[in-house]
Design a protein around this nucleic acid. Structure first.
Lengths: 215, 215
DNA sequence: GTCTATAAACTGATAGAC
DNA sequence: GTCTATCAGTTTATAGAC
């Protein structure tokens, strides 16, 4: 088995297991036995469990943010100075969905990992993501902000977090929610349909009238 | 030290530590040493770590759902048959905030624990919460649904999850988000102000026009 | 009800043979 | 680059003295 294969197999197994169980709940032994490689291979190739976690995120966040940046640049030249909110959100969702799906990766797993990065208090991971992908995030937030000139900055940023929360939370629990709705209403929901419901809901939230300041 | 004191001290320490670090990341040793009680006391009083986790949730979910049920009943008799969406959301937020604060409990911790219950894949906890508080949840969701008669059920439930995601996510990360906004804009946000921003955003999301079905 | 002592299992990491 | 064997530390849980 070549080195590339081993690294790849470890990353594949770790990505799936982390998304399913979380970081602390997934041992290196579970990862290596799932991947069919030796336990010592993780420390040989990645150095430590922390660095393996970062490598898992790097592998899907780098292509994701690269595509997102390209999409934002394309939008900016296309509609000079008049970025539409719908287009921006659709860019985000299209890149997240199609970009990953074309790689043969599961967007739901992507969202579960993003959710974990937020909620599991792995300080090293948060620092890694912020230092590595903070610029892309700020560029996207900035584009979104210019499409909402009438919303004051603080309200805008809170709403941005509301939107991120709604997205990460509902997509990372997609399977569970979908199962409930299927049982209760017999209605199947695809990920595409859910994003088609989420986008207008997010737009409505971002563009809601700002109540008069109450103190 | 009386038994009640010991049980109470364990619950207090566990609640804080779980909210800060998560379940797996918090050992019984950390809990008992923080609480100033013996390690064996946890298993004596609660049986196991899992049952301690459930007890922590039971201690704040029972008064919360009791208050929420009472508030919903009060609203239903007050405005017969014409429940207002604003009122319902304000009930939820007021009960969550004031009800807990009057107990001397931190609502942010409450939200962090709720977020953990969702994201950390503790199957036993999800089963416990669903079996114990599922009825209250369904009553609240039902009230909300009747206030939105023009939204089809499936769209309504997805939006309900979007709303829950926005709420749990942003409030459980309240301190972190607040710190960022304070640094970038010098604007302090209180929990009350954030809920005052969240409520209209949630209403806008729930009441957004439903796009024509595309498939 | 509280304590000490310990069982039994698991964890990440590494030294050294091949 | 891969393997075995093992270290050193941690975890939950419990038996038994007080």
């Amino acid at each position: 088995m070549s080195q590339l294969d081993t690294v790849q197999r470890i990353l594949d197994a770790a990505e799936v297991l982390f998304a399913e169980r979380g970081f602390t709940e997934t041992s290196l032994r579970t990862i290596t036995s799932t991947a069919g490689v030796n336990l010592a291979a993780v420390n040989y190739h990645f150095g430590s469990k922390k660095e393996l976690i970062q490598a898992v995120f790097e592998r899907f966040l780098t292509p994701f943010t690269t595509s997102l940046d390209a999409e934002l640049a394309r939008l900016a030249t296309e509609e000079e100075g008049s970025l539409q909110l719908d287009d921006l959100l659709q860019s985000l969702y299209r890149v997240a969905l199609a970009g990953l799906a074309s790689q043969g990766r599961d967007p739901r797993r992507f969202m579960r990992l993003l959710g974990l990065a937020y909620t599991q208090s792995q300080g090293h991971l948060r620092r890694f993501i912020v230092s590595r992908y903070g610029d892309s995030y700020r560029r996207f937030a900035g584009s979104l902000a210019t499409a909402l000139p009438h919303v004051d900055p603080v309200t805008f940023y809170w709403r941005l977090y509301f939107m991120l929360g709604a997205t990460v939370f509902s997509l990372s629990s997609f399977d569970a929610i979908e199962a409930i709705l299927r049982e209760d209403f017999g209605a199947e929901s695809s990920l595409e349909e859910t994003l088609a419901r989420l986008a207008p809901a997010a737009v409505a939230m971002l563009t809601a009238p700002v109540p008069a300041e109450g103190g």
